[in-house]
């Protein structure tokens, strides 16, 4: 534990304000932190600026005010291509739907991060000997049987597709998994199962998780639960560490 605390936060937003041109600020966050290995639930209805937050953390846009830190780096100090590279190296995204490239097989979708990020390729190779074996281990961990691996992703159910997306996000052990409503296309039974699988695999990989959803019923699975509307306040105001809950 002390070891983790000595490391810089996986992601940290400080006094971040962002407005699209000619509009009122859609993001106004005093502080948002995900520490290494921490799993954070962020509740927010649609229209609350979730996708803007995603783009800010991913470094696709820069805030007008404040700073976004990924580990030891400040995004605003980096060039566009450097931010692109950092995103590929350090963040695994899972979206609401359409995570996968329809023209690739299940396995090729999972190994995609290794094609674009050298770091994640190397890590995937180190972990299981090869990128392919890493992908297969993740697919197995996420309950996707071998007969599906070479299939086209279009042949899968919504639940299976989200698990493939999770495997892809986890490949090459990025320090942060960023999920945007990943369960909204799933029925109630599968939602909890998906979240539990995602969290246990993330824990195995040592990744921090920032999970954005309007579905508060999932919140108790996470070590930290936050609300989007309250982020304008000091984060410590509604900060409920997992330890304190016990």
């Amino acid at each position: 534990m002390t070891d983790r605390i000595s490391q810089p936060p996986t992601v940290r937003l400080q006094n971040v304000s962002f407005a699209w041109p000619g509009q009122a600020p859609i993001i106004d966050i005093q502080e948002l932190t995900v520490n290494p290995g921490e799993t954070v639930f962020l509740a927010g209805p649609s229209g609350s600026g979730k996708s803007t937050l995603l783009n800010l953390i991913g470094g696709l846009i820069l805030p007008q005010k404040g700073d976004v830190f990924l580990g030891d780096l400040t995004l605003s100090s980096l060039s566009g291509p450097a931010r692109d590279r950092l995103r590929g190296d350090r963040i695994g995204f899972i979206f609401q739907e359409f995570n996968l490239l329809p023209y690739l097989s299940v396995e090729d979708n999972v190994t995609l991060p290794a094609r674009l990020s050298l770091l994640r390729r190397r890590r995937a190779q180190e972990a299981f000997g090869s990128v392919q074996k890493s992908a297969q281990a993740l697919l197995t961990g996420l309950d996707l049987e071998e007969s599906l691996w070479s299939r086209k992703v279009t042949a899968l159910s919504a639940g299976q597709r989200q698990r493939v997306a999770a495997a892809r996000a986890l490949l090459g052990r990025p320090p942060l998994i960023m999920a945007d409503e990943p369960t909204s296309a799933l029925d109630a039974d599968h939602r909890l199962a998906f979240v539990d699988l995602l969290l246990s695999e993330s824990r195995k990989a040592g990744a921090g998780v920032l999970f954005v959803s309007h579905d508060r019923s999932l919140a108790d699975r996470f070590s930290v639960s936050l609300s989007f509307s309250s982020l304008g306040l000091k984060q410590s105001d509604n900060y409920t560490p997992a330890e304190a809950q016990k």
Partner: peptide, 16 residues
């Protein structure tokens, strides 16, 4: 466009 967004999330540059 959605496919391009996925590739961007994986670290693809606009040039890519």
């Amino acid at each position: 466009r959605r496919e391009l967004a996925v590739l961007r999330s994986l670290g693809a540059r606009p040039l890519d």
